[in-house]
Structures are given as structure tokens and as C-alpha cells.
Amino acid sequence: MKKLLVLGIGNILLGDEGVGVHAVEELKKEEWPEYVHLVDGGTFTHDIFHILEKYDATLVLDIVHGGKNAGTIYYLEEKDIINNEKQRLSLHDIDLVDSLNMAGAIGKRPELRILGMEPENYTEWSMEMTDTCKAAFPHFLEKARQEINRFVEEFAQ
């Protein structure tokens, strides 16, 4: 049976930087197939390679610096963050790609997809997302559900 890791990345102490963690915590309240695992990855993406190699696919939920308005939602694949130096996946992109490489070296490298949101505040201490990102959050959750279900459909084939 194939397995999907939905990994929320971010720091909930830095406002919008925690959007991925907040999203995973909300999604955990819902029913998912037993092979869909939702994990709060915090900011320790470099230390999670031993977890990644157990999965066939990983959906990362995080902030994305794409230069658009705060609250903009992005869908990216691994090649998008590797091939575009201007694109940064949160503050953790290098660690995440390194972790994927290490997972591949010791076992299995999962397919990577990323769902991200453009932050407004990610440098100032706050346990709350900005109003802009709070307003976009329900749409972000819906896109995450769609991506999870897309993986589920692909796994069924």
C-alpha cells in the first residue's frame, strides 16, 4: 500500500510563517484513509529524512515567497524549487530538499508537491496569522484537501 505524508512546516511563533502547521492541525480533525499521515514538521525539515523515506509521496504545506500579494496560494512541484533560485519555499527549502536527497540515499525518495501561501508577516513575533492570511486560510485548506484527494486517486490506480 502506498503512503502519503502531509507535512506542515513552519514556526507558529512568527505569524503567517506557521500556516503549514496550522493547516495540518486542522486537517487532522478530519477523516482520512489510513495511508494518509498528517504530521507537524515544525522547522526541523533537515532532521526528518528518516521519516520521508517511509513514504511514496509528500505534500508539504508551508509559506512560499513568490512575490505576489499576501494570501496568494501556490502549487509547486519539487522541480519548481530546485530549478528556480528566485522561488523560496519558506525558510526551510534547502533543508527540505536535502532531507529528500538523504531519504533517497538510505531508502526511498518520495514524490514531492508543495502547497504554499504568500505570507504578510513572517518575521515578527505573533501567535496569530495576519487578517489577510486568515481570510485566505479556508481556501488554502480546501486546496490541501483537493491535493490529498488527488494523491488518493493516483494511489488507487
Rank of each mutant, 00 (worst) to 15 (best):
A144Q: 08
E118L: 05
Q157G: 12
L59G: 11
S90V: 09
N69G: 15
L38Q: 04
I63C: 02
L61M: 03
L89I: 14
C133L: 10
M1R: 06
V36Y: 13
V60R: 05
E111Y: 14
D47H: 10
D95M: 04
I9P: 00
L115P: 13
I114S: 02
D47E: 10
I73D: 01
K108R: 13
L89H: 02
D56H: 15
D80M: 09
E77Q: 14
L89Y: 00
R150L: 14
G71Q: 02
E85G: 01
I51R: 09
R113T: 14
N11G: 01
K54A: 04
M129F: 07
G104C: 09
D98T: 11
L7R: 00
L38V: 06
H50C: 01
I106W: 08
T58W: 02
E25H: 02
G8F: 06
M127K: 03
I73N: 03
G18F: 00
A57P: 07
H22V: 11
A23F: 03
P33Q: 02
V60L: 08
L13W: 11
I73S: 03
E17T: 04
G18A: 00
Y35I: 00
I9S: 00
P119Y: 05
I51K: 13
Y122V: 00
S126H: 05
R145G: 07
E26S: 13
L4G: 07
E85F: 11
D16Q: 04
N121S: 12
V152D: 05
L38T: 04
I51D: 05
T72V: 08
A103P: 12
L112D: 06
G107D: 04
I63L: 02
V97M: 09
T72Y: 08
G10Y: 09
L14D: 06
E26W: 00
E77H: 12
V39L: 14
V36L: 12
L112C: 02
I82T: 15
K68A: 12
K143T: 13
L96P: 11
P138T: 11
L5V: 07
L76Q: 09
V6K: 10
T130S: 15
